[in-house]
Design a protein around this nucleic acid. Structure first.
Lengths: 123, 123
DNA sequence: ACTTGTGCTGACGTCGACGTCAACTCGGAG
DNA sequence: CTCCGAGTTGACGTCGACGTCAGCACAAGT
């Protein structure tokens, strides 16, 4: 299949697919007239990229997963490098959740305090 | 005081201060030779900006707080517009925390699953 | 044959909050 | 006088993941 069909089937744009290729994340065979040619395996790779970026992974973080699939593994996270990314991301997320929760509580407190001042005795 | 001193005392860079001015967030008097001149009140405004951006508020979000201080209020969040920003931010944070928590749990689950596959019987 | 659709490459635009650099002026110290 | 530090404006660079446009070639459908 060519790039348009892969785009439709994967839910990405052709621009994104060419971009991934420019990063070396996705490799395409070329037909005699220079057009990119993909197969079902590529669709699988793109799907892996999508599902990971969809939950907030950076494109670079998806690289080990894609490589893992390329190496013949059944799933992208069956390689040590992928698992390492999972670990790192999990730590990042833990910290982020913690930080945001603290900020949220602080904002909530300031909001309540400000409301008390604006309408001191509303009821 | 001039921009250098305000930068030191506020913990910002001169570049940031000029940038804030270019956004109309901060106004400076000029001395006869064209240099920016600030006073303690400006330091207060800059402090308000800093404390808000420090917890993740966008610069534009600090505008109502700064305006509130300029209008003579004792604190930047004593105005309806500021409170509205609090509310909006709180909603954003709630959603963000929720989303990130879900993602974290998902990543955690995938990590555990992947580890089970990599070393199935380690002990 | 003609039009429409799809593909190609290359390059600039986007957003936010500044960093960095250039080229210049001014005031004060030695 | 000379030099340093601090000030000025203006403009371009940064990061990530593409969007958008220009200008071109080729393929398929009528």
């Amino acid at each position: 299949m060519r790039i348009g069909e892969l785009a439709r089937r994967s839910g990405l744009t052709t621009r994104a697919l060419r971009y991934y290729e420019s990063l070396g994340l996705l490799a395409a065979r070329r037909t005699s007239n220079g057009q990119r040619e993909y197969d079902e395996h590529d669709l699988r790779l793109v799907g892996e990229i999508r599902s990971l970026t969809g939950i907030g992974f950076a494109l670079e973080d998806t690289r080990p997963f894609v490589q893992c699939l390329r190496d013949g593994h059944a799933s992208g996270d069956s390689c040590p490098a992928s698992v390492a990314v999972y670990r790192r991301k999990l730590a990042e997320l833990d910290e982020c959740v913690e930080r945001l929760t603290a900020v949220r509580d602080q904002v909530r407190a300031q909001l309540e305090e400000a409301e008390r001042r604006v309408k001191p005795c509303a009821r």
